[in-house]
Design a protein around this nucleic acid. Sequence first.
DNA 1: CGAGGGTATGCGCATCCGGCATAACGGCAA
DNA 2: TTGCCGTTATGCCGGATGCGCATACCCTCG
Lengths: 306, 306
Amino acid sequence: MPDAHTLGSMMDRIRALLTVIEEGSVNRAAVRLRITQPALSRQMQALENELGGKLLERETSGVKPTGLGHALVKAMRPLVGSYDTALAELRRQARGERSELRVGYLLSAAQSMLTPALAKLRKSQPEVKLKLHDMSPREQIDGLRAGELDLALIGQEGVMAAREFHSAKLCSLRVCVAVADSDLIAAQKSIALKELKGRDFIGVDEAQVPGRNRWMTALCKPAGFKPRFAVVVDGITNVLSQVVSESGVTLLPGYFEKLQHPGVTFVPVSDEKARWDFIVLWQKGRASAATRALVDALKQVAAALR
Amino acid sequence: MPDAHTLGSMMDRIRALLTVIEEGSVNRAAVRLRITQPALSRQMQALENELGGKLLERETSGVKPTGLGHALVKAMRPLVGSYDTALAELRRQARGERSELRVGYLLSAAQSMLTPALAKLRKSQPEVKLKLHDMSPREQIDGLRAGELDLALIGQEGVMAAREFHSAKLCSLRVCVAVADSDLIAAQKSIALKELKGRDFIGVDEAQVPGRNRWMTALCKPAGFKPRFAVVVDGITNVLSQVVSESGVTLLPGYFEKLQHPGVTFVPVSDEKARWDFIVLWQKGRASAATRALVDALKQVAAALR
DNA sequence: CGAGGGTATGCGCATCCGGCATAACGGCAA
DNA sequence: TTGCCGTTATGCCGGATGCGCATACCCTCG
């Protein structure tokens, strides 16, 4: 094996070589590098062995790079530079000094809390660069897992993944039922879950809104029945269309009551236990100052809304 | 001091971390890296200390990257990749397997030898990528010194620098004198140097054609006089203009005889010792196969021309 | 509450790498 | 030529680094 050493320690020798070539002298470079000349001289020999060619022309007045030496400088100096700056950036990030904050949220669900919280954040930490990503709950969880998000505002869907990240419950909303305008239920001011027994439920694709169907099932259990999902469609808007065309019902978080959808009426559920938790998830490990600030702001907003 | 280790050995730990994250397990990564699990586990701790933040979430089923871990992967994986490929390229180059050949030459001087030599090279090593740079002798030497050229075809000017590089004499041309058409000398078939004693010489700027004036002086010494440079101009074409306008003379390599310049006549010098050497210079250190091939081709062409 | 997967820790030893002293080498001046 | 002064290279030793081995710890599942 020609190179007995590791690739990493080789980088140290390459750094040393860059200094030697800059100084044009092993002696002067050794001074700059705070080591002795023999040590540096041996490093250069080792590097030449590892690469398999001479890097320096030794002359009585100092050293000069060979063609290979020049090529090494040209290839390695920028790489070493990027490596160092990347390292510095990671160190800053480790100290929680990252100024970028990538937030995932579902606009319709999070708007009422996120907007005021962001206003607070801007006041306390105006230099933070925000990257807002309007995305589905599934995409939020995937984004967190892939390290592409620092923080996600997510509903009941995120409870499943709460173990993987730090989490805090922001508030719990009441639940409502979506029915067609023509449905008898539509006229009621509120409804008990058990009244839905036997109705056709409209489910939603697990891939897009993970756990939503299981949540509905869990909600109905205390009411004494298991919902039958007549159709499972992809996407919330399609669910509402199906509610109309199939005369089905579906359970939704309370913020849908503010929504307008042609032909659909939202009726609040009266059961005490039927709640929709809204939580914030953020990466484990030391959170950046910006992350902590936004989480705090969200908690305050949630407390005020309650 | 937070990081007691070197930046280079840190790269080894970063490499290890990349493997750990890919495998999702310190155990499996240790197998891949051919070290034991405790060793790798300690490397990860060391890296976390050096960066000042947690990189991995330890779970009973293995490990997962934290936000910082993800950021490190994103920043470092491409860098480590470039570093390795750059290293591989340098190793290839050290073994003389580089396929690019950067040649510096002065078209008017080198054309007669370079063209056939390149034809030979193309035959013996057709995969070699040539970069031809038509440049002044000074630029050629600077290019060699800066490692931007592999090989230079240069005249007498290069002899000064021959110690710094490998060199081979290709041929020696006779010398000619440039005089105005109206000059008495212009009618002669040839001329002895001593006949130029007392004439005004036209010199050329040292920065562009280094050593040319010194060469003329050295040439005249055996003839028993020291040329007086009435004017020193920059650039060969300006020299010829001055020859006409100032009725000066200048010494030039023989290949100028083939040139046409209005108002200037070139008269061969008869002195045996007055020769113009044409040499090839190439980088010290192990020369690439392509370099050696071109040098050989040039030598053959030179021998054939003689 | 043991078994079995994972990660962390204590300890001893080889290896590496730097410092010190000194050799070897080349140019320059007397 | 010889001696001097600059350079780089080499011999040797000691300290720190980092590995392997054995084992401790921790969590989950049956």
